Amino acid sequence: MEKLSERTIEERLDKIEGWEYVNGAIETTFEFKDFREAFATMTHIAFECEVQRHHPDWNNIYNTLNIRLSTHDAGGVTEKDFILAHAIEKIIESA
Results as ranks from 00 to 15, higher is better:
Asp34Asn: 13
Asn59Val: 04
Asn23Phe: 05
Arg68Tyr: 00
Glu20Leu: 15
Arg68Glu: 00
Thr28Tyr: 13
Tyr21Asp: 05
Ile92Tyr: 00
Asn63Ile: 12
Asp34Thr: 08
Asp81Tyr: 03
Glu79Gln: 13
Thr29Gln: 11
Val51Thr: 08
Phe35Val: 00
Leu65His: 04
Ala95Trp: 08
Trp19Tyr: 10
Arg12Cys: 14
Phe32Ala: 03
Asp73Glu: 14
Thr43Phe: 07
Glu20His: 10
Lys3Pro: 07
Arg36Asp: 12
Asn23Cys: 04
Gly75Tyr: 04
Asp81Trp: 01
Ala95Gln: 11
Gln52Met: 15
Glu48Ile: 07
Ala25Met: 08
Glu20Val: 15
Trp19Phe: 08
Asp81Ser: 02
Glu6Trp: 14
Glu89Asn: 06
Asn59Lys: 04
Asn23Arg: 03
Pro56Asp: 15
Ile61His: 11
Ala74Gly: 09
Leu69Asp: 01
Leu69Tyr: 02
Val51Pro: 08
His44Pro: 14
Met1Arg: 10
Ala40Thr: 09
Glu20Asp: 15
Ala74Leu: 09
Lys15Val: 15
Trp58Thr: 05
Ala85Phe: 12
Thr8Asn: 09
Ile16Gly: 04
Thr8Gly: 08
Val77Trp: 03
Ala85Met: 15
Pro56Cys: 11
Arg7Thr: 10
Phe82His: 03
Asn59Asp: 08
Ala74Arg: 06
Lys33Arg: 13
Ala25Pro: 05
Ala85Cys: 11
Asp14Met: 12
